[in-house]
Design a protein around this nucleic acid. Structure first.
Lengths: 246, 246
DNA sequence: CGAAGGCGAATGTTCTGACATTAAGTCTTT
DNA sequence: AAAGACTTAATGTCAGAACATTCGCCTTCG
């Protein structure tokens, strides 16, 4: 069977060949050219069709398998994994999530300061004693409805920050522009009931359910960049993720 | 610098060479032989030290980078990522989590039936109309204290299930023994307040905070194996995870 | 007629070799 | 002394080849 998934390779492009293949096959799957459950040609044929070596083809398919789009079976072949597997689990901020979904979030900065960090924050961010950090709390609304109450601490040797920038942009966008390449995040998700302050800020009742999240993010040099404690209205937000067994 | 991480390779072993290297370096990191932040020898030297080719060495390091233990920088070298990065995000059940932490959970099966699935379950598990599934609810306790209330639906063409087995073992262990190789899980984590029934079962107050989780798991053949809706006492449980940017 | 063995096809593993790209330090030149 | 160019060292990419392992099907033998 000549799969003939209409993808072409540009050898003069700076983007690696295997990654071009990844993008091509991803596009073919999401656009429906490759149907869920269908079998692909074998690695050697595919490599030949695209004038690539088998290791290159294999590396591309490796990535697709790891991301859960393909399933390989020894002695059998490779299939497109059935069904609509949605967003893979990745580092993203609430702000990204919302804008990607076409919503228009607004941010209100409730407090902003540049202060000496206390011991707990120093330990979490692995900073030497006496270090200063940015500390701020924000309220995020979507369509005028409050959604999240967020408190964050950010090390101050990355980029200048001020209240105006935080109002206009998401935290992660600001940090990325400051040259941070995020690598890891450790997070913990739980639940609590709203206290009086939280209830009033989120315009919900005292005692209503909230989703809590604590997160600490690390960049590619191993620096702890940011830590925060967020609470979300449980009736408006939940965490969706896809776990991939490796 | 001769790193000399005391790992040896067994070429007669059936476990692939690159995986032996992965395990060896993992062990060196967790045991402290390789300290956080320390630099490794370059790929070519390491390969030579172990009498391996560079691609094999590279594949091993690839996996360690992906799992967040190492950080590579072009033109510079490879470092052990600083600090105590905990559990990587992986498919695991509450039962596994608890037993791995030395706790002794007990399970009480509240209801168990083998019934025709309703439309919602049929759609979620992608089963043809009229299919039967196992449906059960369980209460999990640790040290006599109730922790989770779980309701699950499992396709019935995998393995025989009964109330006794469920009482003695975790659901995932049973399914794995039935030949299921889990690949993906889609889950959603949120929060709610306890209703009267939940409060009484979990021995907490009505209106107290609960963590909710809905999960659907898929095996390596693309079959939807299981779906469930769980609630946890927020004061006793939260989800901890490490996200890795790829 | 059924079960065991054999065969082909696919993925899994490993090697050798080569060149490209990036980052950092060093050396030269102005 | 500072700015630029060069060198070096590391990771990043790609090719081609060989052999191993597993699965499913087909044939053959009891």
């Amino acid at each position: 069977m000549a799969n003939n998934l209409g993808l072409s390779i540009d050898r003069s492009s700076p983007v690696p060949l295997y990654h071009q293949v990844v993008q091509g096959i991803e596009a073919a799957i999401y656009s429906g050219v490759l149907e869920p459950g269908s079998r692909l040609d074998n690695e050697i044929d595919l490599a030949a069709q695209l004038n690539l070596s088998r290791p290159t083809m294999r590396k591309a398919m490796d990535e697709l398998v790891r991301s859960g789009l393909l399933v390989r079976k020894r002695g059998v072949g490779t299939q497109v994994v059935s069904s609509q597997v949605r967003r893979p689990l990745e580092l993203s901020s609430l702000y990204d999530d919302l804008t990607n979904n076409g919503k228009k979030p607004t941010t209100e900065v409730l407090s902003f300061s540049h202060i000496e960090a206390d011991d707990a924050i120093l330990a979490t961010l692995q900073l030497p004693a006496g270090s200063k950090v940015y500390h701020f709390t924000r309220l995020r609304k979507v369509g005028g409805k409050p959604l999240a109450l967020m408190e964050n601490w950010v090390r101050d040797d990355i980029t200048e920050m001020d209240q105006a920038t935080l109002t206009a942009e998401g935290l992660y966008a600001i940090l990325r522009r400051g040259g941070v390449n995020f690598r890891l995040a450790n997070q913990r998700i739980g639940a609590m009931t709203a206290n009086e302050y939280q209830a009033s800020m989120l315009e919900t009742g005292e005692g209503s359910a909230l989703v809590t999240m604590e997160r600490t993010a690390t960049d590619d040099t191993g620096r702890r960049v940011e830590t925060g404690h967020h609470v979300y209205r449980a009736d408006s937000y939940s965490f969706e993720m896809t776990l991939v067994q490796r």
